[in-house]
Write a protein that binds this DNA or RNA. Structure first.
Length: 336
DNA sequence: AATGAAAACAACCGCGCGGTG
DNA sequence: TCACCGCGCGGTTGTTTTCAT
């Protein structure tokens, strides 16, 4: 994550700390447990699991985080930035595993996280992405910048799975076809990864005199920063980009004249501003203003018309694999 | 009001991957 | 080439909260 932590100002941090320390709402319930560590039974059970702990500290603390620990962690990250998690427990004195620190930050303390009920739009997006991507929660979360993969995963397991099960009872035939398509889609994606690599390789080593479309593809930025750090993931990012285009039809909604949507972020004192350029680069900048709103330029994200690449054409080829119109299933059977 | 079941969600665990020496 | 380290991901667990009886 690339956040502008300099902008994560001290006043907002102070408000954040006060807010988190004082307001006794369900949002912070896990941080307000009177007894902070887990039961001895659980600790003993976990110690017996056989694998050495990921941290050197034997007496590493587990269980819910306290407000004090949160403050220490946030303060440290404010000064040093996220990353180098190994050194966080050492430098802060937190009796926590580095993994635990990272998880706490990414899933809970990080600015710009939206919590609470998922909107219908988010639900639909998750269902569609899960159909297309499977349980790749991180990839799915990259399409919902304000939601964490853990949040989406939990929401899927607790809400959406059940909804889909209900639908399955009502229309088992259709869903079976959908499952078949999903599995087939994933197998195709995996087995033809070489083909995709070749397509990418061709695009990157193109002859300037060749097709202008290829040039446009080359210049098109890859989105989804978590997926763009290696050659194989670059291919994956490309396919994810395709999926965003696949989703665009059902995603279409009335847009304002400047093609932006505003999302209030009320989880904490900071808010997330997603700029068109930074969105393409997977960079989020955080505004310290408590009342700031998030402006997401989704027009370029979901509605940009670009030529189809080899892989995209292959993905769109319905004769190759019979696809199910999931939205029609939802409409017909009243999923949402 | 009490109690058990179900739901919700934060946190942990193990594994795999990429970078580095 | 190999071992090690740091990190991220997905699956799972444990605890708390909410709901139903």
């Amino acid at each position: 994550m690339s956040s502008s932590l300099e902008e994560y100002s001290r006043p907002s941090l102070l408000l954040f700390c006060i807010y988190r320390s004082v307001i006794p709402c369900a949002f912070f319930h896990s941080s307000l447990h009177p007894f902070l560590s887990q039961s001895p039974r659980v600790e003993e059970k976990r110690r017996d699991m056989g694998r050495p702990p990921c941290c050197e500290k034997i007496d590493v603390k587990k269980g819910p985080w306290t407000p004090e620990e949160d403050i220490i962690l946030v303060t440290y990250i404010q000064e040093h930035g996220p990353g180098n998690w190994r050194s966080v427990p050492t430098n802060t004195g937190l009796l926590r595993c580095s993994k635990s620190c990272r998880l706490r930050w990414t899933n809970y303390l990080r600015p710009g996280i939206k919590r609470g009920n998922f909107t219908d739009h988010e639900e639909k997006l998750i269902v569609h992405l899960q159909t297309l991507l499977g349980n790749r929660w991180a990839a799915i979360a990259s399409y919902l910048p304000e939601r964490t993969d853990n949040d989406i995963k939990n929401y899927w397991n607790t809400h959406l799975k059940k909804k889909l099960k209900k639908v399955e009872i009502g229309c088992s035939d259709s869903i079976n076809v959908a499952k078949f398509s999903k599995g087939q889609w994933e197998r195709r994606l995996q087995t033809d990864i070489g083909m995709a690599k070749k397509a990418l390789s061709d695009a990157l080593s193109f002859d300037p005199a060749q097709d202008n479309n290829i040039n446009q593809q080359k210049q098109r930025p890859t989105i989804l920063s978590p997926l763009s750090s290696s050659s194989s993931s670059a291919v994956y990012a490309s396919s994810a980009e395709n999926i965003s285009r696949l989703l665009k039809n059902w995603m279409q909604k009335p847009l304002s004249s400047n093609n932006t949507v505003s999302v209030n972020t009320t989880a904490n004192s900071s808010s997330c501003e997603v700029k068109p350029d930074s969105l393409q680069e997977g960079i989020l900048e955080f505004d310290s203003s408590p009342s700031a709103t998030t402006e997401i330029s989704d027009a370029s994200f979901f509605q940009e018309e670009t030529p189809l690449s080899m892989l995209e054409t292959w993905l769109f080829d319905e004769s190759f694999c019979p696809q199910v119109d999931i939205s029609s299933i939802e409409d017909t059977h009243g999923l949402f």
